[in-house]
Write a protein that binds this DNA or RNA. Sequence first.
DNA 1: GATTAACAGTTAAACGATTAACAGCGGCTG
DNA 2: CAGCCGCTGTTAATCGTTTAACTGTTAATC
Lengths: 355, 355
Amino acid sequence: MAPKRSTIKDVAKRAGVSTATVSNVFSGSKPVNAELRERVEGAARALSYHVDRAASQLRSGQTKVVGVLVPDLDDVFFTSLVSRLEVRAQEDGYDVIVASSRDNPELERSRLRALLGWRPSGLIAVPNNDEIPQILADEAHRLPIVLADRVAGISTFADAVTIDNHEAGAMAASHLVALGHRDVVIAASHLSFAPIRERVRGADSVLFGEFGEGARVVELGSNSDRGADIFADWLDRNARPTAILALTNVTTLAVLSALAARRIDLPEQISLIGFDDYAWMSARKTALTAVRQPVDAMAGMLWDRLKARIGGDDSPPRRIELNTSLQVRDSVRDLSMTANARPVLPRKHAPVPGE
Amino acid sequence: MAPKRSTIKDVAKRAGVSTATVSNVFSGSKPVNAELRERVEGAARALSYHVDRAASQLRSGQTKVVGVLVPDLDDVFFTSLVSRLEVRAQEDGYDVIVASSRDNPELERSRLRALLGWRPSGLIAVPNNDEIPQILADEAHRLPIVLADRVAGISTFADAVTIDNHEAGAMAASHLVALGHRDVVIAASHLSFAPIRERVRGADSVLFGEFGEGARVVELGSNSDRGADIFADWLDRNARPTAILALTNVTTLAVLSALAARRIDLPEQISLIGFDDYAWMSARKTALTAVRQPVDAMAGMLWDRLKARIGGDDSPPRRIELNTSLQVRDSVRDLSMTANARPVLPRKHAPVPGE
DNA sequence: GATTAACAGTTAAACGATTAACAGCGGCTG
DNA sequence: CAGCCGCTGTTAATCGTTTAACTGTTAATC
């Protein structure tokens, strides 16, 4: 690891110009004569010089980094968000530092602190839960911040981009109702997450309106393996519903695993609406009907808002709700024909013994 | 966005100490009296002070950042790698900057350049293809670099962590052969990727040894939707094999989609071995038999090597090959019983018209 | 009790870039 | 032709830390 890295001075000396000129060549903040520019670029190449971001940043205060904090880098929803944000950031010359809080409030704080140390131009954060960490709130008035996904109500201090969770739940429930389903169980991740609660409420609003009662809810957590166990167990102990509504892609997976383990056929024996829309959901014999979150639009919105804020927009915080859409495929059985003949599957039911 | 951020000087003044002491409190490079430390921490909290990484880095030369470059942040294999690396990095106090080269050599160069601008402590890179970019090679002797996955042969300038691709292919093929399969088609992503070629070779080595001929190979690319179209089309135009061996998780998905689109049943009508082992592969009625890459071990190895290099280890570059394992589940049909009665499905065959 | 050693804190010089202020040099204009 | 402008380039101050060198104090050693 020998040859010391070259600095702007080395380049300047080699090209026979001042360091200021070299800086201008690279930052483009002042025009530089073509011939000189050539010389500088040649010298830089020969020395394999790269501008040192730390020094550049320190002096200019211009960071060109954004921090992205998500609760879980193993959840495809978040990674697809990160992926799209990275693209947008790169297009605008920003680098992104990712951090995962792994659903741990303490880690969230410490990752946030680490991110702030970069003095980033902005921050895009998916909070762990409703309680926005104090550090974020403190920073909000001096640092552009945009929140996503897990945001409750109207955030008072930063823009927030979410989907219309209530509508998403309602839309799914309506679809189930329209196809003759009445006994629905909701596979939620955690009811402590605001968007999950909203989705439940949305579904219940429809079910209540229709039948005077809501859905049963099971919490499966954020890990699909554990969720599968929990749900399989739940299936063993409870009367079987005609349909399941999963509220995240992880719970969708958990439900699917549990159904496979218990050899319950989709959609013959039970119907399912999944959440999110990833390739594996349709790469199956009975493709999943699912609520599709507009991840692209979401990332786009997040980036646009952040750029606006970085650009000095100081209008009051906005909450932007994107609409989901229902991808109707084959995992919901149409019960509306048989519904009159045999109203609903009997509510009381011997537990199905484990396989 | 008003109140200026506080600096080490502000904290020093408020706590009535020198800036050096404040620095010592935060970096821990020199012991500081408990009472003073308290005062400093209190002052820092009151001013919501964070050490400025740019300044810190500039002065100390210590970066505590690693760059991670992958070809595609929408591929779960890479994101699961990133996720695990982020965990390890965080544990050791490093931050990670992610960059995706999106399978584009030019972008790869520019992302690499951006990453190098950080003067990172190290770099973990999954190259786009066999040709390691010149920038990387140039940097290799002054910057710890560890390569992963898409690395051909013995890399002469940096450590490389891969799986034993030949063995992986051979293992999968052996399994197929053992269950009476002879007519195998390999769903590859791109034959221009070294590991893919190796996997094909591994599979062929077994098939040749057994039958004197290898497998047919289809290239499906790195996008599952397009891959699904290509494969569905291929199925329409070619004699149907008894088994498919997919060589990446994306091609596994593509194959599954195509089979679903053509209503071909797994494993009754065709058998499949997938690659990688993600939850969605087993969350189905016929769970997929698949080659499992040890992503955890891989990330662990990558990090360990990088740490060693950062720590000054300058032994010659090593290539580390991890072993895969075959997760036997239900997607490969046992043909060995029927094999004698009806040797193999006829090779020549009218194309199956599209559904 | 003199000499060192160990400790805890301070001072001030870097680190490598950016950029305000300035300088030199035609070319225009009145 | 004086004065000014616009253009390109340079000089030098500066960003917020870290850290080598230093100072002063206390404890340990002979």
